[in-house]
């Protein structure tokens, strides 16, 4: 009990807790992603309009969902870091941002590749693609600010403020981009949104979404563990975790 409350034990306890979760999260992620994508690729029926090209949806939609979900998670971590001054929350910002950035990149890339057969061009100023691009810039901004400072603590706090400023702006940016898109190309229908989906397509999509949820959680857990170790490298418990015997020869 006291050890839990002791501030020096905090990093260690969190590290161990995350360590207990990581194998389960990884296994679930691998299972659900494999089943969802395999089903989507080979067993789901082709779309009557888009043929087999729609199969990109099984990776594009989950990635887009969790690219935004990760930003929300990062903003929550930022709020906790600023209000309660919890250092684990500061490190969580650095753990979530790269994962979110990669998910955003995946959503952007798959969207662009999908656009080639659908719209005949690699890049279309479609509302969802545009707002994903801006989201990528926001992620890069948070990461750049986090690592710009010599003092890690200052960098984390500055990045936390930026993440909160960003999360207020994300809905506004999202709305404005969708509105701008409807203004300039009202005729183009967003082909990502399907009004209704048959069960044979929806089931693998939902499995894939669950898989990406576990995948995001596992990736963040892995990076957060690394971040805790990095910040507490000089503490004996961290050195023990990294395979150094503290008693040896001293």
């Amino acid at each position: 009990m006291w050890k839990w409350l002791h501030p020096y034990a905090k990093g260690e306890a969190t590290y161990r807790l995350l360590g207990a979760w990581l194998p389960w999260l990884s296994a679930l992620a691998a299972l659900f992603v494999a089943v969802g994508l395999g089903w989507g690729l080979f067993y789901a029926p082709p779309d009557y309009q888009q043929g087999d090209s729609y199969r990109i949806i099984f990776i594009h939609v989950p990635a887009a969902m969790f690219s935004m979900g990760a930003y929300t998670g990062m903003a929550i971590a930022a709020l906790i870091a600023l209000v309660w001054q919890i250092r684990t929350a500061e490190w969580a910002i650095a753990a979530i941002a790269p994962v979110g950035a990669v998910l955003t990149f995946v959503a952007l890339f798959t969207g662009a590749v999908w656009g080639k057969p659908m719209w005949g061009t690699w890049w279309e100023w479609d509302a969802r693609l545009t707002s994903e691009l801006i989201l990528l810039f926001l992620y890069i901004g948070v990461l750049a600010l986090y690592y710009a400072f010599n003092d890690a603590r200052t960098g984390a706090k500055a990045a936390a403020i930026l993440a909160l400023v960003g999360v207020v702006n994300v809905p506004i940016i999202h709305f404005s981009v969708y509105w701008w898109n409807s203004l300039h190309q009202g005729a183009t229908i967003t082909k990502f949104e399907k009004p209704s989906m048959p069960v044979e397509m929806l089931t693998p999509l939902l499995i894939s979404i669950a898989g990406f949820l576990f995948l995001t959680a596992a990736l963040v857990t892995q990076r957060l563990r690394n971040e805790i170790l990095k910040q507490e490298l000089h503490r004996p418990w961290a050195q023990q975790q990294l395979g150094v015997e503290a008693e040896h020869g001293v």
């Binding site: 801006i134 810039f137 926001l138 890069i140 901004g141 750049a144 600010l145 710009a148 400072f149 200052t154 500055a158 403020i161 930026l162 400023v165 960003g166 702006n169 506004i172 940016i173 709305f175 404005s176 981009v177």
Partner: peptide
């Protein structure tokens, strides 16, 4: 205010701010 203690915030500042100007 975020970048004032960095000394050379110019390029970083535009990276942080320009996306927020879009709306």
């Amino acid at each position: 205010a975020l970048t004032v203690s960095l000394g050379r915030g110019g390029a970083l500042l535009s990276l942080l701010l320009l996306p927020l100007f879009i709306p």
